[in-house]
Design a protein around this nucleic acid. Structure first.
Lengths: 120, 120
DNA sequence: TCAGAGACTTACCTTTAGGTAATTATTGTT
DNA sequence: AACAATAATTACCTAAAGGTAAGTCTCTGA
């Protein structure tokens, strides 16, 4: 019983909590999906694709994803600098699941929005 | 090109953004997984299983999930009151994906934590 | 008559996420 | 000399998420 509780609550040891916290934010999934579609993108390209993300948040998001080993950063020592981002192998094993999630969201969005409306 | 940008950024029409925003919070996934495991639970049972959630947040989370048609609430007109929560059909179509996600998280948590450490 | 059970609700406060706008470094171009 | 380009960084601010602790409602049993 106590164990059950631990399994569901313990932030340090719950893998779901621990890992999914990282892309439950506003931008991570979007960046992952974009990179999955486009393969390799430079900082400013991502910035343009996701028109509404701020430079700061793009930096933060990419750093977190890089720290988790989901995104690879390749900097070319040129002036002006060029930096290319792409998905790692690890991220590529995750993408099918994210695609499923996206598909589910696509299928169910309309119904869910209906539900929300009928509650209000 | 402009279309691409829209597809990736538009909050109103992006299904992923729109739907997944809802369980990208601190507790929703946990509650869904718990209900998936236990089938039917009362308010205080959930509260005990997830030892660290506050009453307020449990209420908020359950209400959001109910509004989205993912959780069903059955109140029995007794004193003291009894309320039972369970997953809806809609939620049950979502659970396999969440299970996959959990599995992926389980498999990759250790490596991801290593990555994070090596970055710091 | 007062405590207790169950499922909340409310007021208040702190923490975190995220946004804005200005600034940096370096070199080639005008 | 000033400017443009690229990929950031920094200081500052607002809004949203989440936590704490106390209160509410209604009946039952001691």
């Amino acid at each position: 019983m106590e164990n059950k509780v631990k399994n569901y609550a313990d932030e340090e040891h719950c893998p779901v909590r621990n890992v999914l916290d990282r892309f439950g934010d506003k931008w991570s999934m979007l960046v992952l999906m974009l990179l999955s579609d486009m393969d390799v993108l430079r900082f400013n390209e991502i910035h343009k694709y996701i028109g509404t993300i701020s430079q700061k948040m793009l930096t933060v998001t990419l750093k977190k994803l890089e720290a988790d080993g989901l995104v690879e950063r390749k900097a070319y020592p040129e002036i002006p600098p060029r930096v290319e981002y792409s998905l790692t192998k690890r991220a590529k094993t995750l993408m099918p699941i994210i695609q499923d999630l996206a598909q589910w969201a696509n299928k169910n969005m309309a119904d869910i929005q209906d539900s929300r409306r009928s509650v209000v």
